[in-house]
Simulated assay, not measured.
Amino acid sequence: MTLPAFLVAALAEIGGCFAFWHVVRHGGAPWWLAAGTASLAAFAYALTFVEAEAAGRAFAAYGGIYIAASLAWLWAVEGVRPDRWDAAGALMCLAGAAVIVFGPRG
């Protein structure tokens, strides 16, 4: 359940933040703020489904997923292709998230 929860959370968080970005930076209609707020609430709810014994650990591991998903958004929605440095950074963050999620605990 962890990976699907992370992916839903990432889409909801990025979409919610983008809604605010669109209003402030590009003069989008105010209704975008309502959609953005609802999306950010969905993000927080999605993270409650992550299989972790502590919220902080779940949030830390989510950071790697968020970074990779943000680069996918950059390409798919904003039309900017990530470069090799973006890809390398995302891979490092995903590796860090995997250590947090799958590391042995005593």
Results as ranks from 00 to 15, higher is better:
residue 92 M to G: 12
residue 81 R to L: 08
residue 78 E to D: 13
residue 4 P to R: 09
residue 102 F to I: 06
residue 31 W to R: 14
residue 65 I to W: 08
residue 22 H to P: 03
residue 85 W to N: 08
residue 43 F to R: 04
residue 88 A to N: 08
residue 60 A to N: 07
residue 42 A to F: 07
residue 44 A to L: 13
residue 24 V to W: 13
residue 23 V to L: 08
residue 31 W to L: 14
residue 75 W to E: 00
residue 27 G to T: 06
residue 56 G to P: 06
residue 9 A to P: 03
residue 34 A to N: 00
residue 70 S to H: 04
residue 71 L to R: 13
residue 86 D to M: 01
residue 20 F to Q: 03
residue 68 A to E: 08
residue 79 G to K: 09
residue 7 L to T: 03
residue 68 A to S: 11
residue 32 W to V: 04
residue 12 A to T: 10
residue 73 W to S: 02
residue 62 Y to K: 04
residue 14 I to H: 00
residue 68 A to R: 07
residue 45 Y to Q: 07
residue 98 A to V: 12
residue 104 P to W: 05
residue 65 I to M: 10
residue 94 L to H: 02
residue 6 F to D: 00
residue 86 D to I: 02
residue 64 G to V: 08
residue 16 G to D: 05
residue 106 G to S: 11
residue 83 D to Q: 10
residue 65 I to T: 13
residue 84 R to E: 07
residue 96 G to I: 08
residue 1 M to G: 12
residue 33 L to H: 00
residue 55 A to M: 14
residue 70 S to E: 10
residue 39 S to L: 15
residue 44 A to T: 15
residue 12 A to C: 14
residue 23 V to C: 05
residue 95 A to D: 00
residue 72 A to V: 15
residue 38 A to Y: 01
residue 97 A to D: 02
residue 26 H to R: 15
residue 99 V to R: 03
residue 9 A to Q: 01
residue 85 W to Q: 12
residue 72 A to T: 14
residue 35 A to W: 09
residue 95 A to M: 12
residue 18 F to Y: 14
residue 20 F to K: 11
residue 16 G to S: 06
residue 97 A to H: 06
residue 1 M to S: 14
residue 37 T to V: 13
residue 85 W to A: 06
residue 44 A to W: 03
residue 33 L to E: 03
residue 47 L to Q: 08
residue 51 E to K: 15
residue 95 A to N: 05
residue 44 A to R: 12
residue 2 T to F: 07
residue 95 A to P: 04
residue 5 A to H: 11
residue 61 A to W: 09
residue 1 M to L: 12
residue 71 L to E: 01
residue 55 A to V: 13
residue 104 P to Y: 06
residue 8 V to F: 11
residue 28 G to H: 12
residue 60 A to H: 01
residue 36 G to S: 04
residue 38 A to M: 13
residue 1 M to Q: 07
residue 94 L to T: 06
residue 8 V to Q: 10
residue 73 W to A: 05
residue 86 D to W: 03
residue 75 W to H: 12
residue 48 T to L: 10
residue 91 L to T: 08
residue 48 T to Q: 14
residue 10 A to G: 01
residue 23 V to H: 13
residue 3 L to S: 10
residue 53 E to Q: 14
residue 16 G to F: 05
residue 59 F to Y: 15
residue 29 A to T: 13
residue 33 L to W: 01
residue 75 W to F: 13
residue 32 W to Q: 03
residue 99 V to K: 10
residue 49 F to N: 12
residue 12 A to K: 07
residue 104 P to D: 09
residue 64 G to Q: 08
residue 101 V to D: 02
residue 54 A to H: 14
residue 12 A to W: 04
residue 75 W to S: 03
residue 33 L to F: 03
residue 50 V to T: 06
residue 76 A to I: 15
residue 29 A to K: 14
residue 34 A to G: 06
residue 74 L to P: 01
residue 20 F to R: 09
residue 50 V to S: 05
residue 103 G to Q: 03
residue 94 L to P: 03
residue 45 Y to K: 02
residue 59 F to I: 13
residue 64 G to H: 07
residue 106 G to E: 04
residue 72 A to I: 14
residue 17 C to V: 14
residue 89 G to E: 02
residue 41 A to L: 15
residue 54 A to M: 10
residue 37 T to N: 09
residue 101 V to C: 09
residue 99 V to M: 11
residue 30 P to R: 15
residue 5 A to M: 06
residue 57 R to H: 09
residue 9 A to I: 06
residue 85 W to V: 09
residue 26 H to Q: 14
residue 98 A to T: 10
residue 13 E to F: 08
residue 43 F to K: 07
residue 60 A to D: 02
